[in-house]
Protein backbone atom coordinates (compact mmCIF):
# COMPACT_ATOMS: atom_id res chain seq x y z
CA UNK A 1 0.00 0.00 0.00
CA UNK A 2 2.97 2.26 -0.58
CA UNK A 3 1.62 5.20 -2.50
CA UNK A 4 3.64 7.38 -4.83
CA UNK A 5 3.29 10.37 -2.55
CA UNK A 6 4.63 8.32 0.36
CA UNK A 7 7.75 7.65 -1.69
CA UNK A 8 7.97 11.33 -2.62
CA UNK A 9 7.81 12.33 1.08
CA UNK A 10 10.37 9.63 1.92
CA UNK A 11 12.90 10.84 -0.65
CA UNK A 12 12.32 14.48 0.36
CA UNK A 13 13.05 13.51 3.98
CA UNK A 14 16.03 11.47 2.79
CA UNK A 15 17.49 14.53 1.04
CA UNK A 16 16.79 16.79 4.01
CA UNK A 17 18.33 14.36 6.53
CA UNK A 18 21.31 13.66 4.29
CA UNK A 19 22.16 17.32 3.83
CA UNK A 20 21.69 18.23 7.49
CA UNK A 21 23.62 15.14 8.69
CA UNK A 22 26.53 16.16 6.43
CA UNK A 23 26.34 19.70 7.80
CA UNK A 24 26.50 18.33 11.37
CA UNK A 25 29.99 16.96 10.73
CA UNK A 26 31.26 19.65 8.34
CA UNK A 27 29.93 22.77 10.07
CA UNK A 28 32.75 24.81 11.61
CA UNK A 29 30.51 26.14 14.38
CA UNK A 30 29.56 23.51 16.97
CA UNK A 31 26.33 25.30 17.87
CA UNK A 32 25.30 25.22 14.20
CA UNK A 33 26.21 21.52 14.16
CA UNK A 34 23.88 20.91 17.12
CA UNK A 35 21.07 22.82 15.38
CA UNK A 36 21.59 20.81 12.17
CA UNK A 37 21.29 17.72 14.36
CA UNK A 38 17.81 18.97 15.33
CA UNK A 39 16.84 18.93 11.62
CA UNK A 40 18.22 15.39 11.21
CA UNK A 41 16.38 14.10 14.29
CA UNK A 42 13.14 15.79 13.21
CA UNK A 43 13.55 14.04 9.85
CA UNK A 44 13.86 10.72 11.69
CA UNK A 45 10.66 11.55 13.60
CA UNK A 46 8.90 12.27 10.30
CA UNK A 47 10.10 8.88 8.99
CA UNK A 48 8.50 7.20 12.03
CA UNK A 49 5.24 9.01 11.26
CA UNK A 50 5.50 7.71 7.70
CA UNK A 51 5.87 4.17 9.13
CA UNK A 52 2.70 4.64 11.23
CA UNK A 53 4.80 4.56 14.44
CA UNK A 54 3.22 7.73 15.78
CA UNK A 55 4.17 7.19 19.42
CA UNK A 56 7.83 6.53 18.59
CA UNK A 57 7.85 9.69 16.47
CA UNK A 58 6.65 11.89 19.33
CA UNK A 59 9.04 10.24 21.77
CA UNK A 60 11.79 11.10 19.30
CA UNK A 61 10.64 14.74 19.29
CA UNK A 62 10.22 14.93 23.08
CA UNK A 63 13.40 13.15 24.16
CA UNK A 64 15.90 13.65 21.35
CA UNK A 65 14.90 17.02 19.87
CA UNK A 66 13.68 18.40 23.19
CA UNK A 67 15.98 17.03 25.86
CA UNK A 68 19.15 15.62 24.30
CA UNK A 69 19.79 18.74 22.19
CA UNK A 70 19.28 20.95 25.26
CA UNK A 71 21.82 18.79 27.09
CA UNK A 72 24.25 19.08 24.16
CA UNK A 73 23.91 22.87 23.99
CA UNK A 74 24.45 23.13 27.75
CA UNK A 75 27.47 20.87 27.37
CA UNK A 76 28.87 23.21 24.71
CA UNK A 77 28.25 26.25 26.89
CA UNK A 78 30.09 24.57 29.77
CA UNK A 79 33.19 23.59 27.85
CA UNK A 80 33.97 27.02 26.38
CA UNK A 81 34.08 25.30 23.01
CA UNK A 82 36.05 27.21 20.42
CA UNK A 83 33.74 28.32 17.63
CA UNK A 84 36.40 29.56 15.22
CA UNK A 85 36.93 27.90 11.86
CA UNK A 86 38.81 24.62 12.00
CA UNK A 87 39.58 25.02 15.68
CA UNK A 88 38.49 21.49 16.49
CA UNK A 89 39.53 19.74 13.32
CA UNK A 90 42.34 17.24 13.66
CA UNK A 91 44.31 14.74 11.61
CA UNK A 92 42.23 11.71 12.59
CA UNK A 93 39.85 11.95 9.64
CA UNK A 94 40.96 8.61 8.20
CA UNK A 95 40.36 6.76 11.49
CA UNK A 96 37.00 8.48 11.84
CA UNK A 97 36.02 7.60 8.27
CA UNK A 98 37.02 3.94 8.76
CA UNK A 99 35.11 3.74 12.06
CA UNK A 100 31.99 5.36 10.63
CA UNK A 101 32.18 3.17 7.51
CA UNK A 102 32.59 0.00 9.58
CA UNK A 103 29.67 0.96 11.83
CA UNK A 104 27.46 1.66 8.82
CA UNK A 105 28.51 -1.63 7.21
CA UNK A 106 27.83 -3.72 10.31
CA UNK A 107 24.45 -2.08 10.94
CA UNK A 108 23.40 -2.51 7.32
CA UNK A 109 24.55 -6.14 7.32
CA UNK A 110 22.63 -6.91 10.53
CA UNK A 111 19.42 -5.35 9.19
CA UNK A 112 19.71 -7.09 5.81
CA UNK A 113 20.53 -10.37 7.57
CA UNK A 114 17.50 -10.10 9.84
CA UNK A 115 14.85 -8.84 7.41
CA UNK A 116 16.10 -9.89 3.98
CA UNK A 117 13.25 -10.39 1.53
CA UNK A 118 10.55 -9.75 4.12
CA UNK A 119 7.82 -7.39 3.13
CA UNK A 120 6.30 -5.56 6.05
CA UNK A 121 2.92 -4.25 5.04
CA UNK A 122 1.90 -1.15 6.90
CA UNK A 123 -1.58 -1.07 8.30
CA UNK A 124 -3.14 0.37 11.38
CA UNK A 125 -2.68 -3.04 13.02
CA UNK A 126 1.12 -3.16 12.55
CA UNK A 127 1.70 0.47 13.45
CA UNK A 128 3.48 0.79 16.77
CA UNK A 129 1.00 2.33 19.13
CA UNK A 130 1.45 3.60 22.66
CA UNK A 131 -0.98 0.90 23.76
CA UNK A 132 1.06 -2.02 22.41
CA UNK A 133 4.22 -0.51 23.91
CA UNK A 134 2.48 -0.17 27.27
CA UNK A 135 1.28 -3.77 27.01
CA UNK A 136 4.79 -5.20 26.73
CA UNK A 137 6.49 -2.78 29.13
CA UNK A 138 4.11 -3.45 32.00
CA UNK A 139 3.87 -7.21 31.50
CA UNK A 140 7.03 -8.79 30.02
CA UNK A 141 9.60 -6.00 30.44
CA UNK A 142 8.91 -4.79 33.99
CA UNK A 143 12.46 -5.38 35.22
CA UNK A 144 14.20 -3.48 32.38
CA UNK A 145 11.67 -0.70 32.92
CA UNK A 146 12.61 -0.40 36.60
CA UNK A 147 16.31 -0.65 35.71
CA UNK A 148 15.85 2.45 33.52
CA UNK A 149 14.87 4.43 36.61
CA UNK A 150 18.07 3.21 38.31
CA UNK A 151 20.05 4.40 35.27
CA UNK A 152 18.41 7.83 35.44
CA UNK A 153 19.09 7.92 39.20
CA UNK A 154 22.77 7.17 38.58
CA UNK A 155 22.97 9.92 35.92
CA UNK A 156 21.42 12.50 38.23
CA UNK A 157 23.59 11.60 41.23
CA UNK A 158 26.67 11.75 39.01
CA UNK A 159 25.71 15.23 37.80
CA UNK A 160 25.05 16.39 41.38
CA UNK A 161 28.46 15.12 42.51
CA UNK A 162 30.15 17.02 39.66
CA UNK A 163 28.19 20.25 40.09
CA UNK A 164 28.02 20.78 43.86
CA UNK A 165 30.34 23.26 45.42
CA UNK A 166 31.65 21.59 48.61
Amino acid sequence: MVDTWQLVVFWALFAMMGVSALRVVTSSNVVHAALYLVVTLMGAAALYVLLLAEFVAWVQVLVYVGAIIVLMLFGLMLTRAPIGKGMFDNDQRLVAAVTAGALFGVTTWIIVDAFEGQKITLSKATGIRAESIGDVIFSSFVLPFEVISMLLLAALIGAVVIARRD
Binding site: V63, A67, I68, V70, L71, F74, G75, M77, L78, A155, L156, A159, V160, I162, A163
Partner: peptide, 9 residues
Protein backbone atom coordinates in the same frame (compact mmCIF):
# COMPACT_ATOMS: atom_id res chain seq x y z
CA UNK B 1 23.03 25.01 34.92
CA UNK B 2 23.85 21.49 33.78
CA UNK B 3 21.97 20.05 36.78
CA UNK B 4 18.78 21.69 35.61
CA UNK B 5 19.30 20.47 32.06
CA UNK B 6 19.87 16.93 33.31
CA UNK B 7 16.88 17.12 35.67
CA UNK B 8 14.81 18.12 32.64
CA UNK B 9 16.10 15.15 30.61
Amino acid sequence: YYIFALLFV
